[in-house]
């Protein structure tokens, strides 16, 4: 079985999806692929009734790419029909509507592309060392799973 190509990157810029999709089509069609699924996450402007001003993403900088690569590899090992995966996560300050993550999966069949893309996304959401601060009109919140922790309750009082 041919090992699928996995590309992981972290950055502050948007991606040109056309370029990536074209490159993936050309690279993987000869390997039997015929379906690319592209997932793009973006910043919500409204959360729990509060208007979002921005999200600030930070990461375990030195190792985050390697860890996302390992998470992705672990998922695609289960799918013999995946031919290529491209994962790109943005960090820094993002405004509502800005893209946050891109996951593209090229596979032999559409079911594999959809399932693998979803599973890679879930693995990244749960286990990638990327941290999200939600800045809303009603306060600043660290997002931990489904929980939101108000930043003002955490700050250490200078002694």
């Amino acid at each position: 079985m041919t090992k699928p190509d996995i590309i992981v990157d972290i950055g502050r810029e948007d991606l040109s999806l056309d370029e990536i999709i074209n490159a993936m089509r050309i690279k993987t069609s000869a390997k039997g692929a015929g379906a690319i699924v592209a997932f793009i996450g973006f910043v919500k402007g409204l959360v729990n009734g509060g208007r979002v001003e921005k999200l600030v993403y930070t990461a375990y900088d030195k190792y985050v790419k390697e860890i996302i690569y390992d998470l992705t590899e672990k998922v695609v090992e289960k799918y013999s029909n995946v031919r290529m995966v491209y994962v790109y996560h943005k960090i820094g300050e993002l405004s509502p509507g800005d893209s946050t993550i891109y996951i593209l999966v090229s596979a032999v069949d559409r079911n594999t592309s959809f399932s693998a893309a979803r599973e890679i996304l879930e693995a990244i959401k749960k286990n990638a060392p990327i941290f999200k601060l939600e800045v809303r009109e009603d306060g600043e919140y660290w997002v931990i799973g489904d929980k939101r922790i108000n930043r003002s309750e955490l700050r250490r009082n200078p002694s």
């Binding site: 990461a59 375990y60 996560h89 946050t100 993550i101 990638a128 990327i130 941290f131 931990i144």
Partner: peptide
């Protein structure tokens, strides 16, 4: 706790290791 970039459960570490304490991630 991550030691030298690897999630560490029951390993040992020393002062020369690169040690990090991380909250749960919230990427995506």
């Amino acid at each position: 706790i991550y030691v030298n970039g690897r999630l560490a459960d029951d390993t040992e570490c020393s002062p020369n290791d690169e040690i990090a304490l991380l909250p749960p991630g919230s990427g995506g």
